[in-house]
Design a protein around this nucleic acid. Structure first.
Lengths: 195, 195
DNA sequence: ACCATGTCAATAACCGGTTAGATAGATAGA
DNA sequence: TCTATCTATCTAACCGGTTATTGACATGGT
């Protein structure tokens, strides 16, 4: 509706909050929680540092909020398909290539926020995926060589293989993107191929 | 020789340096560079904080030294075998399971030290591995479906699949270690199996 | 006028890094 | 062997700058 189009200058808490979340996502993706600076986040969001504490409770809480939103966007984007895992891996590969912040944020989360209950959205998404995989298995559309958990873990690991390389590897000549993508898709295909 | 056996209390720069390196490895594995505290490292090494700056130049340099030593120990331990990649993946899996600090340190390194020239030991180890893989390929002992780089990347990614899980996964019941190990070895086997 | 929204400025704690000096142990001269 | 001297090793205390966080105040919109 037209009322959504507001002059940039007007006071709008929702918009400011969103700018903070975006800035926080970028800052934390680059430096992590311990290395991230609320000062830089406020500056990038073009607002005062104190607003962070008005809208969020703490730096940690800001990370959690930004990460949760980021994960939700990611989940909405991927479109998991338990009956075509190679294609799913290919989509994941593209996401990781196009937006390196995805892997970095997830890595920081794993390293710096390994305690805590975990994000409900992620837990339920995982369960839904596992259910889909088990369904595909029971219908004979997917190998039951391994249980669904192993399949999901292996596929995601293969899809992110090129995105989690140690810096030393980029020194050597890595294959081009098309080749890398093909390697991922082909690897997943072989993984789940019937005997 | 007997002179190497010294009382614990005596002043011994080499020994102190080693205590610092060990403490730094543990601290950085837990908290990363930005989150790691030199005060805690000094305390864990039972020595004064200033010694860190006498023996190393800075916190970053201390991380580099500790990480380089850790990587060297890891390289000495693994025993890469280009003609038996499933076994290699199994050994990697065991290392990651037995010592979670290995993955954590490597992750921090990737995230917080992605610039810089990279460790010469890692670069040369990679090149040696690629050469072995290419050798095996040219002898027909290894599939040439992908180039050596892709094979190495995929194998290592599969081997570390269970060690890089997001925290949400541990909430669900993950398979036991034997099952996980078998999944890794089997996945690598299928990856490189001849058509 | 009223309240949500935002600013300003202060603060207390923290942290990497430094400095001046103490001390253990080796060394050398007697 | 004894002791004065020297040096590597180590320590306590400190410093300047940074950081997350807060409370008092301003301001725009309705």
């Amino acid at each position: 509706m037209a009322s959504d189009i507001r002059p940039e200058r007007t006071r709008d808490a929702a918009r400011t909050k969103q700018r903070l979340l975006d800035a926080a996502r970028d800052e934390f993706a680059e430096y992590g929680i311990a290395g991230g600076r609320v000062e830089r986040i406020a500056a990038a969001a073009r607002c005062n540092k104190a607003l962070i504490y008005a809208y969020f409770d703490s730096k940690n809480a800001l990370f959690d909020a930004a990460f949760a939103e980021h994960v939700q966007a990611h989940l909405d984007r991927v479109n998991f398909d338990g009956t075509d895992l190679p294609a799913y891996a290919g989509r994941l590969f593209d996401i990781f290539e196009d937006d390196p912040a995805v892997i970095r944020l997830a890595s920081w989360y794993r390293l710096e926020r390994s305690n805590g209950p975990g994000l409900p959205a992620v837990i339920s998404a995982n369960q839904a995926r596992l259910e889909k995989l088990r369904q595909a298995q029971s219908e004979g559309k997917l190998t039951d060589r391994w249980d669904a958990t192993a399949i999901l873990v292996l596929v995601q690991s293969i899809a992110s293989a090129w995105a989690t390389l140690n810096p030393e590897f980029s020194a050597t000549t890595a294959p081009d993107r098309t080749t890398r993508r093909l390697a991922v898709i082909d690897a997943v295909s072989r993984l789940i191929a019937p005997d």
